[in-house]
């Protein structure tokens, strides 16, 4: 590289002499940054999604490479959010790829002092047994006046406002068939 080229390659000179007067683009590019590509451009696929935090319902684009989420950005096509995301929506990649996220079933036995591991199918089986047992033990066929109750007051559930409609649907349907009526979420507004 000659001295002249070297001099003309200086970012400040490029900024002063070139079209990028504010020094936000070409003028400040280095060899290293010129070689960088955004994660979004190398994704295998882009999946349309919706922000899981608040009820504005911003559109999201989920960028996936090799079966991993590599980036989540706003969807410019959404007529509601027009591509924008707030700090929570922008951080949602960390929500789904967090290193402290738990991906194994944990079990604490009665009076236990620590977690233990339990395979998922074993846990499902144990939970089903407990539901059946509690339902049998705490069951009301009728009230004192002989009116049908057909319910268990032994089982309760809290949650739903962060879940999908389809999930809420199956929850309510199963609980209703079980006779569990103490079902709640945070939607009481």
């Amino acid at each position: 590289m000659g001295a002249r080229q070297w001099f003309l390659g200086w970012p400040v000179v490029r900024q002063a002499t070139g079209p990028d007067k504010l020094g936000r683009g070409a003028a400040v590019q280095s060899q290293r940054s010129a070689a960088l590509t955004p994660r979004t451009s190398t994704a295998d696929k882009v999946v349309k999604s919706v922000c899981p935090y608040c009820a504005v319902g911003c559109g999201q684009q989920v960028f996936v490479k090799d079966g991993e989420v590599t980036q989540i950005e706003g969807d410019p096509n959404s007529p509601i959010s027009r591509g924008r995301l707030c700090p929570k929506g922008s951080a949602s990649k960390q929500l789904v790829t967090s290193p402290s996220r738990i991906s194994e079933v944990l079990y604490r036995r009665p009076h236990g002092t620590d977690w233990e591991r339990l395979p998922l199918d074993k846990a499902m089986d144990m939970i089903a047994d407990r539901v059946i047992k509690t339902r049998r033990e705490v069951w009301q066929d009728t009230n004192d006046d002989g009116c049908t109750l057909r319910r268990t007051m032994g089982i309760a559930s809290l949650g739903g406002a962060t879940l999908d409609n389809e999930e809420n649907y199956l929850m309510k349907k199963l609980y209703t068939a079980l006779g569990a009526v103490q079902i709640e979420n945070q939607a009481r507004i």
Binding site: R130, V131, E137, I155, A156, G159, A161, L163, N185
Partner: peptide, 9 residues
């Protein structure tokens, strides 16, 4: 009430 599901809350 003896059994409780806490789901996303």
């Amino acid at each position: 009430c003896k059994g409780y599901f806490v789901v996303g809350e």
